[in-house]
């Protein structure tokens, strides 16, 4: 029986969909059978992020309303054996699916897959309730900004109220330079405020935009820092104990000089 994990955040635009895509690709690269479910009905995006937008025939609402069978709606990723996508519907709204249907869907999917990862819509309304209904675990994505952290805190409260205990945190778009000069909350600051287990930290990286532009995932980009961060997170989900990567990236003249005069 597979595990059902929901990726959520409260606030929009912090990187839920990118995270879902990369974790899915990462887990599938380890030989796992993975199904990604886009629960953002009406605003589907996981398909374009994965570069699978041209292959959609049926969607999640077709499945829950009995128009087609699950198997017919699943899109197989040709680049990576084991990765599948169940796309969201684009023309319906979030009430087209209810929590009971989601539970049933997740139960069906977990029979087939090692990991079912649900991309949750922003907000705390019906779409959120649907997305978490069938999940056993939750990952909360946030960025080091007051609005995102506040929303993450709210989401953590709601997850716990819904009996989804011990959600794990991913800090996205982390900028070590800003943290060093005291202009961005650090990993420790975020841990102190949100007080949940940290699953990983993904640094801000232009390569995320570049790969997403092409419908690819940065986790497969061996050279990028964010790709490394996602590969580490993937291994942690698989149960490995992987230390946080060193995010200090500058090695230029100025940082060498800085070190010399003791300014770190």
């Amino acid at each position: 029986m597979g595990e059902v994990i929901v990726v959520t955040s409260g606030k929009g635009g912090v990187g839920k969909t990118t995270t879902t895509a990369n974790l899915g690709m990462g887990l599938a690269s380890h030989g796992k059978k993975v199904c990604l479910v886009d629960a953002d009905i009406g605003l589907r995006n996981l398909d374009v992020v994965l570069g699978l937008e041209n292959r959609i025939v049926f969607d999640i609402v077709d499945v829950t309303s009995g128009v087609c069978r699950i198997r017919q709606a699943l899109i197989k990723d040709k680049r990576c054996e084991g990765l599948h996508l169940l796309p969201a519907a684009q023309t319906k709204d979030k009430t087209a699916v209810n929590p009971d249907q989601m539970k049933e869907l997740c139960e069906e999917l977990r029979k087939e897959f090692d990991y079912v990862i649900i991309d949750c819509p922003a907000g705390i309304e019906q779409g959120f309730k649907n997305a978490i209904a069938g999940a056993d675990k939750a990952i909360v994505v946030t960025t080091p900004e007051v609005s995102a952290v506040r929303d993450a805190d709210r989401i953590i409260g709601l997850l716990e109220a819904a009996e989804l205990r011990e959600p794990k945190l991913i800090i996205n778009r982390y900028r070590p330079k800003m943290v060093n000069r005291g202009d961005m909350m650090s990993i420790d600051d975020m841990n102190e405020i949100l007080a949940i287990d940290l699953l990983g930290v993904v640094p801000e990286d232009e390569q995320v935009v570049v790969t997403t532009n092409k419908g690819e995932t940065v986790v497969r980009d061996e050279k990028s820092q964010s790709g490394q961060a996602y590969r580490n997170i993937t291994r942690r989900i698989l149960g490995e104990n992987v230390p946080l990567m060193n995010l200090e990236e500058q090695s230029g003249l100025f940082s060498a000089l800085r070190k010399m005069i003791g300014l770190k």
Binding site: G182, D183, M184, M185, S186, F254
Partner: peptide
């Protein structure tokens, strides 16, 4: 000079 002035906005 070396860009370490702190406005400390994170606090």
């Amino acid at each position: 000079v070396f860009g370490r002035e702190s406005t400390g906005s994170k606090n």
